[in-house]
């Protein structure tokens, strides 16, 4: 089981934080990550409209053959996306903790401009202690 990466996407679909942990995925350029995050933002909005029965949330878990993406949509519209191996079970808990770290280390920081890329040592440190090198037993 492994955690490959964490993305934070602002409410407009821009990627404001991206970090890789365990190896296993393709190495992409930051531009490619920006495009993927924008696409995911759009897909997330569409999936909530495709519901066959009444109202639905957007996509919560997206699975491939060996990786999955777990998406946490916060009340403010910021999305936390965790890329993990298929068998990883701690994704929801890790995302919740990442959101807490974001609230504490980013949103309470008076020098941070909302919706802008996150460059905060405090946040980096908290994410490092939370996820480490991405290898989870």
């Amino acid at each position: 089981m492994a955690i490959y990466g964490l993305w934070v996407i602002n409410k407009a679909g821009g990627l404001v934080y991206q970090r890789n942990f365990a190896d296993g995925l393709a190495q992409l350029t930051s531009n490619e990550y920006l495009v993927l995050a924008g696409t995911l933002h759009g897909i997330h909005a569409i999936t909530s409209r495709l519901s066959p029965i009444g109202s639905s949330s957007g996509a919560h878990v997206i699975e491939g053959e060996s990786l999955k993406m777990t998406i946490l949509l916060t009340a403010t519209g910021t999305k936390f996306v965790l890329l993990t191996s298929l068998a990883e079970t701690s994704a929801d808990a890790v995302l919740q903790k990442a959101y807490e770290a974001y609230s504490d280390a980013v949103m309470k920081n008076p020098f941070y401009t909302p919706e802008m890329p996150i460059r905060s040592e405090g946040f980096d440190l908290r994410i490092s202690t939370l996820i480490g090198d991405g290898r989870t037993s």
Binding site: S51, S56, S57, H60, V61, E63
Partner: peptide, 12 residues
């Protein structure tokens, strides 16, 4: 060449 398999929301 990995395939997309499924996704899940709260309703489907």
């Amino acid at each position: 060449d990995e395939q997309f398999v499924n996704y899940r929301t709260s309703a489907y």
